[in-house]
Design a protein around this nucleic acid. Structure first.
Length: 809
RNA sequence: GCCCGGGUGACGGAAUGGCAGACGUAGCGGACUUAAAAUCCGCGGGGGGCAACCCCGUGUGGGUUCGAGUCCCACCCCGGGCACCA
């Protein structure tokens, strides 16, 4: 027979008790109109997958929750809402797989998720819950679309798009990873289709320049910087005898004297115009060949470069020489102007191409050991620096200076200007799928695409049973004539609704604006509440959204600001990227079969233990490897605290344990600083040290109460129960974080290390703030030290107060 | 190829240029128990020594410094991002 200790810590009972208490007492409710320091603590809302909460979700939410609870205890007025990003391909694909309509499946998943999130103890005021699939929400997503449309920031145009053959929809550039669909990993195809684009590139400079001033994780800022990919250089114009002006973008205008040919992307608009009759067959053949190839084989470098001559020539604006114009697939239409000046002497790719087609490779830049005649090698073509040669009047000029001078000179002739170009492309936001907000546009033969009037929003997504996407390049909604027939809002003549839906990332690009106004149906976001609560004070989430959600949200916020609808340009004052939880060194994925589901752990150990365990795995901003081996350590820790609470309920000895008091102050200091910086693992470690000391010493209530308060963000149910058992009234979440006195935490003695020639030879326990003279005296008197200095001269002494004496002999 | 982040006991990890390995896990020894679990006490980088102690040790090789896991240079490996971006 197992004997159960009387009143042992029973997490299930404690957690159920406090979850229902919180609900009854409205502990987690926040009065948005109330006074106090508003603190908007945001965590990334999940898409409610059918599998339920993932351990990565728990990790993300817990870390944000700890921070929110900490700020509340520190006296902030914390708003920490929760919602669901429930539209989108991922949700829809799963619905198709199981054969249940998403409109039926998603609410079920949400219900399950909500229960699980509550079980984890996330401090949320559920009155402000939102789901992007709710017509009351997506009405305003459509409204955001129309604001962008009316401002000229969204437009429809034909272009080369990424088409996923499996998901049967176009994808934004950001959703294509190494030529594959980020959702299903299929090879992406190029299609030429009419699509809706958001002119995010117009904001490229602002999106980039603000990054330096944002209090964001360095890693996230770098990802965005690289994604925007600004290059500084020049646009130069090469004219054909026929009067065509071909603009090229280059980061190396200093090498223009070495531009011996031009290359246009095969899709370039001028190709057909300039191609000569003799070359037409070759050019057309090459274009067909390129068009037939997928993006991956097109874009992968290090392969043989191919191309064909168009038969046409253009004049090099610097030398006046006539240079041949080629087309080649190593030049990409979507970057720069889709045309380059080839400088084979100083660009590896051009070098390869020129070598293959026997084009001249002159040198126009030379390092200190080279001159105009030194032959070029491929490796050298990649090197930057040096002075110009073979460059007319610019000979001898330093490379960097020549960039500006040559650009200025050509600008004077109307043949060039300084320019920037970006890797960032406009954001393609239309999707040929069912499960999203219909794009609120009606096409009219006379008026073209017309915005649905605001009073007619939302354009409801119709309940249709046939939601499967097809290969036609148009949405399943296009199969429902009764839905898409609609009168033109301007003239009333028969029109046709846009049948594409918008990208999920449009849904999530503004949800943080909605939360405080989630209970309002008349406005997307209330002006007063927005002014008070936004921008978001602290945002914690995964870096996988660095160039998707986080970039799009910044863009939408900036655009709404420019329309006068928001008083700020940046949505997230502070952003911290949390790490990833991996399993056995590898990312968790269904295909690997190493996905960890949190539920069984919560059943066995309780949510508080599980929360703390996840936080103890490693630095929050780095993540860690999930292995259940260590979880018992956290439980043992909580059991020890439980024991301390019980002993604190019995009479205390009147003698204060001063050593414990000192340690208490140091612990509060450390836990405060570490929690603020999300260093949860070390905060927990120092609480453990403190608890070990409490068990070895003679603690009083005054030592234990601060411990319970420090635990409250980490193990909220447990802390509530302890708080109650200590006889304190009300929720621990309404108490104040303990104060500390750094001086009171100081020990009276310090261990001073004595080094001789850099090696530790003694450890002296000296009174705190021992003077240099006394410390050195004590060091020289130490027997262990004397062994190493007797008979030799001490040449130098370094003294660090309360830390060390370093002797050099 | 380019841009980040990282490499520390058996394991997860800790260390404002100042005692490397806090805290925890696994392990080992002991107490309690008929026994086991739980709990409690102790050990816990490697090597040497009866011992006090000594030597070596933070991916590799150099350097700066009284002193380097920490700073600098070169390289190797792992993780992430970008990738024919002109």
């Amino acid at each position: 027979m197992t004997e159960i200790a009387v009143d042992a810590y029973d997490p299930t009972a404690v957690e159920l008790k406090w979850q229902s208490r919180w609900e009854e007492r409205g502990t987690n409710r926040v009065d948005l109109a109330g006074s106090g320091r508003p603190f908007y603590n945001l965590m990334m809302f999940p898409y409610p997958s059918a599998e339920g909460l993932h351990v990565g979700n728990v990790f993300a939410f817990t870390g944000a929750d700890i921070y929110g609870r900490f700020r509340r205890l520190r006296g902030d007025h914390v708003f920490q809402p929760f919602g669901f990003d429930a539209f989108g391909i991922h949700s829809e694909n799963f619905a198709l797989k199981v054969g249940i309509h998403p409109a039926e499946l998603i609410p079920r998943n949400i219900a399950r998720f909500r229960t699980q999130v509550k079980r984890v103890g996330i401090m949320t005021d559920w009155r402000y819950e939102l789901s992007t699939t709710d017509p009351g929400y997506y009405k305003w997503t459509q409204w955001v679309f129309l604001q962008l449309f009316n401002a000229g920031l969204v437009s429809r145009r034909r272009g080369a798009v990424n088409w996923c053959p499996r998901d049967k929809t176009v994808l934004a550039n950001e959703q294509v990873i190494a030529g594959r669909c980020e959702r299903c990993d299929s090879l992406v195809e190029v299609r030429f289709l009419d699509q809706w684009y958001c002119a995010i590139t117009r904001y490229a400079d602002r999106l980039l320049d603000h990054l330096e001033t944002l209090d964001w994780s360095q890693s996230t800022r770098l990802l965005q910087t690289n994604w925007i990919g600004r290059s500084e250089g020049a646009e130069l114009v090469f004219e054909t005898p026929g009067g065509q002006r071909i603009t090229v973008f280059t980061t190396r205008p200093d090498t223009v004297y070495g531009a011996t040919y031009l290359v246009l992307a095969p899709e370039h608009a001028l190709v057909d115009t300039i191609t000569t009759a003799e070359q037409r067959n070759a050019v057309n053949g090459y274009k067909r060949e390129v068009a037939a190839r997928d993006i991956v084989s097109r874009k992968v470098g290090d392969k043989e470069k191919t191309g064909v001559f168009t038969g046409a020539y253009a004049r090099n604006p610097a030398t006046g020489a006539s240079v041949p114009i080629w087309i080649a697939d190593y030049v990409l239409m979507e970057y720069g102007s889709g045309a380059i000046m080839a400088v084979p002497g100083h660009d590896e790719r051009d070098f390869d191409f020129a070598s293959r087609y026997k084009l001249p490779i002159p040198r126009v830049v030379a390092g200190p050991e080279q001159d105009a005649k030194t032959p070029l090698t491929r490796a050298e073509s990649d090197i930057q620096g040096g002075r110009l040669v073979n460059s007319g009047e610019f000979d001898g000029m330093a490379w960097a200076e020549a960039k500006t001078r040559i650009t200025e000179r050509l600008a004077g002739k109307g043949l060039g200007k300084a320019a920037r170009t970006y890797r960032l492309h406009d954001w393609c936001i239309s999707r040929q799928r069912y499960w999203g907000p219909p794009i609120p546009i009606i096409y009219c033969d006379e008026h073209g695409p017309v915005a649905v009037p605001e009073r007619d929003l939302p354009v409801l997504l119709p309940m249709v049973t046939d939601t499967r996407p097809d290969d036609s390049g148009i949405s399943p909604l296009a199969r429902h004539e009764s839905w898409y027939r609609a009168p033109c809002p301007i003239c009333g003549k028969p029109g046709r609704r846009e049948t594409d839906v918008s990208d999920t990332f449009l849904d999530s690009s503004w949800y943080f604006l909605r939360y405080p106004s989630a209970d309002r149906s008349d406005v997307p976001f209330d002006a007063q509440l927005t002014k008070k609560w936004l921008p978001v004070t602290s945002y914690i989430g995964g870096n996988e959204h660095a160039v998707l959600h986080l970039l799009y949200s910044r863009f939408v916020t900036m655009a709404l600001h420019d329309m006068g609808r928001l008083g700020f340009e940046e949505p997230f004052a502070r952003f911290r990227a949390h790490g990833t939880i991996v399993k056995d060194g590898a990312k968790m994925s269904k295909s690997r079969g190493n996905v960890v589901v949190p539920e069984p752990y919560i059943d066995q150990w309780g949510a508080d233990t599980f929360r703390m365990y996840l936080m103890f795995l490693g630095p929050y901003q780095e993540g860690g490897d999930f292995r259940d081996a260590g979880i018992s350590g956290i439980r043992r820790f909580l059991d020890k605290v439980w024991g301390l609470i019980r002993s604190a309920q019995s009479p205390q000895s009147p003698q204060e344990d001063k050593a414990l008091t000192r340690l208490m102050h140091r612990t509060i200091e450390k836990v405060t600083i570490d929690t603020e910086s999300l260093s949860y693992n070390t905060a927990i470690a120092s609480m453990m040290e403190y608890v070990n000391a409490l068990r070895d010493g003679s603690p009083s209530r005054a030592h234990i109460e601060p411990l319970v308060l420090m635990l409250a963000p980490y193990a909220p149910h447990f802390a509530e129960e302890c708080w109650e058992r200590l006889g304190c009234t009300g929720s621990v979440m309404d108490a104040r974080w303990p104060a500390y006195d750094a001086d009171a935490g100081q020990e009276q003695t310090a261990v001073v290390v004595v080094q001789v020639n850099g090696k530790v030879r003694a450890r002296l326990t000296l009174p705190r703030a021992t003077s240099q003279a006394d410390a050195i005296k004590a060091a020289l008197a130490d027997a262990g030290v004397r062994k190493f200095i007797d008979g030799v001269e001490v040449k130098k002494v370094v003294f660090v107060p309360d830390k060390l004496v370093s002797l050099v002999v």
